[in-house]
Design a protein around this nucleic acid. Structure first.
Lengths: 161, 161
DNA sequence: TATGAAATAATCCTACT
DNA sequence: AGTAGGATTATTTCATA
């Protein structure tokens, strides 16, 4: 190949910059913003999408207006940290809609979750019924967010009854 | 008023569901997906945007392909938790591009940050030069993510040199 | 990469259910 | 509130230079 597929020149970077702010912008407007005509922009866009650099496009929702303003971070420890146990937990956590993020952590605990619900009561239900019962969970510590200083918004749709 | 502006019926919910997955879908396609004709869908879409329920649209990027695969969570304690100190910190943290999320936490520490960088070296630089020097920061604890189990993707553009 | 033509879609409208 | 259709403008898509 003549060049690595993931190399991005300054036009690609500009495209990403614009799409990070307005994912619904038209190719025409995008082209004029970055100073190129439509065709190459369309080709570049397609390449970035096919490449996997651009994963997709999402609407961003206001958690407050959707009544899902309760955020908690949960440290989770497992009673078994062998591969099979970790895999079982990883698979199970994907199915819990209220869990927005889940990272395996190096250090004192095993996982850090970010959980979004409507309120504290809903959070307690999610913790008791969905998180605590996941495979190999031995204990959890919850830290409730009092205020969100920085966060792009909600990417998932609200969980409906 | 005849009804609350933020009430969402099942069509609105369907619209949000679709846009959560494909933020770039055309109004025509959206209309046929939710089983309504164009006019009402366009009106609803406009209402949801004007309402603030839909905050905007973003492209989602693959952190790995962009070489920004290092995620750390940072607990931050301040030496002063009075309003003015908190406000100073809140304002300052918004300017640190590598900080994706910042929440004020009820409990043992004051803030929890999520920081994304290219690698550990970059993280150390951000911690030392950008986070530790923010107003009223007294100490920090870092937890490095070993693996991302659940996360929608990157919303910001990569920080370029 | 640019340009221009044809197909498609968005936007706005009116009339009707 | 929603449907259906038409008119206008904008955009995508594709061919060609």
């Amino acid at each position: 190949m003549t060049k690595r597929t993931s190399e991005l020149d300054s036009f690609d970077q500009k495209i990403l910059d614009v799409l990070a702010v307005d994912g619904r912008i038209s190719v025409t407007a995008l082209a004029s913003k970055i100073g190129l005509s439509k065709s190459p922009v369309q080709a570049r866009l397609k390449r970035l999408e096919d490449n996997g650099v651009i994963r997709g496009y999402r609407a961003l929702f206001d958690p407050i207006r959707l009544g899902r303003n309760h955020i908690a971070f949960v440290e989770v420890k497992l009673d078994d940290t062998r591969e099979t146990a970790l895999n079982a937990f990883n698979t199970a956590i994907l199915r819990v809609g209220e869990v927005e993020q889940c990272h395996m952590i190096a250090g004192a605990f095993d996982y850090l979750l970010k959980v979004r619900t409507t309120d504290m009561a809903a959070y307690r239900a999610v913790l008791a019924e969905k998180i605590s019962t996941l495979p190999h969970v031995s204990n959890t510590s919850t830290y409730v967010a009092m205020q969100t200083i920085k966060e792009d918004g909600m990417l998932a749709t609200p969980v409906r009854p």
